[in-house]
């Protein structure tokens, strides 16, 4: 309940590859679609066809611009959802116990039947990962698709979050970050995966893989001309070329 359980061995979470995410927003609507009909109340959309539509989304994709000192500016697409923190402040602030971290796998969930909709947990989350549903009056957040990943009604290969399953570039990875041998842990190790705002002391489980270095100056490597065209003319060039053939 509101107190955090002892740290679990299994730490399920997402690893998001910022080098590969093209910002297509597929994970955003796949998440919306699954969770609109899955865990808890539907995700409402207020003023859906009006001047200020405002809906509940559990996953949103930002886009940032980075301007290095040398080289052209870059755009980095940046999906953001709950990081299933180990020291989840959203859990401990909750007055009702609705917000909790699962003892067995570390997933942070809201028990909507107990939630009074006070919003405090959203205030406590540094990452903006919680959204109060305006229609249901309960707090919504990424469930890590807890109703998919263990779901025996789904084929084995589909037991992964909706956003991961749909991501066309494969920029989203799901797995056990508590197991250093898991594929996700190895990815994090290989690619220098990092946590967001570590100084907030939340100890997120999710990791981000940084963009690879871009726009390396490659001007140095150039092609050696076959021979000086000016000196030999076209005929000389052609001879040299066809000699190789």
């Amino acid at each position: 309940m509101t107190a955090l359980p002892p740290p679990s061995a299994k730490k399920l979470g997402l690893v998001i590859d910022l080098d590969t995410c093209v910002g297509c927003q597929a994970c955003v609507t796949a998440c919306k679609g699954w969770n609109d009909q899955g865990y808890g109340a539907p995700l409402s959309d207020m003023d859906a066809y009006g001047s200020e539509p405002c809906g509940t989304f559990l996953n949103r994709v930002h886009s940032y611009e980075v301007t290095p000192d040398d080289g052209p500016a870059q755009i980095i697409n940046f999906p953001r959802s709950c990081l299933h923190c180990e020291d989840a402040p959203c859990v401990t602030v909750c007055p009702t116990g609705a917000s909790y971290k699962r003892a067995e796998d570390g997933i942070v969930l809201v028990n909507e039947d107990a939630c009074i909709g006070c919003g405090l947990c959203a205030w406590a989350c540094p990452y903006g990962a919680r959204e109060m549903d305006a229609a249901a009056g309960v707090m919504k957040k990424c469930t890590l698709c807890v109703d998919r990943i263990y779901n025996e009604n789904l084929p084995e290969e589909d037991r992964q979050p909706a956003c991961v399953r749909t991501c066309p570039t494969g920029a989203r990875h799901f797995g056990d970050l508590g197991d250093p041998e898991s594929a996700v842990s190895r990815l994090v190790a290989d690619r220098g995966g990092y946590a967001l705002m570590p100084e907030m002391g939340t100890r997120p489980v999710n990791r981000y893989l940084p963009p690879r270095p871009k726009d390396a100056r490659r001007e140095a490597s150039v092609l050696a001309p076959l021979l000086d065209l000016q000196a030999t003319g076209f005929a000389g060039w052609l001879d040299r070329l066809l000699e190789r053939f």
Partner: peptide, 22 residues
């Protein structure tokens, strides 16, 4: 720090043009 993208980062486009709860 929020993004881990270094000091010269700036929001380019919001995730949604519509406002949200947060």
């Amino acid at each position: 720090a929020a993004t881990g993208l270094g000091p010269r980062v700036r929001p380019f486009a919001p995730p949604h043009t519509s406002p949200n709860y947060v």
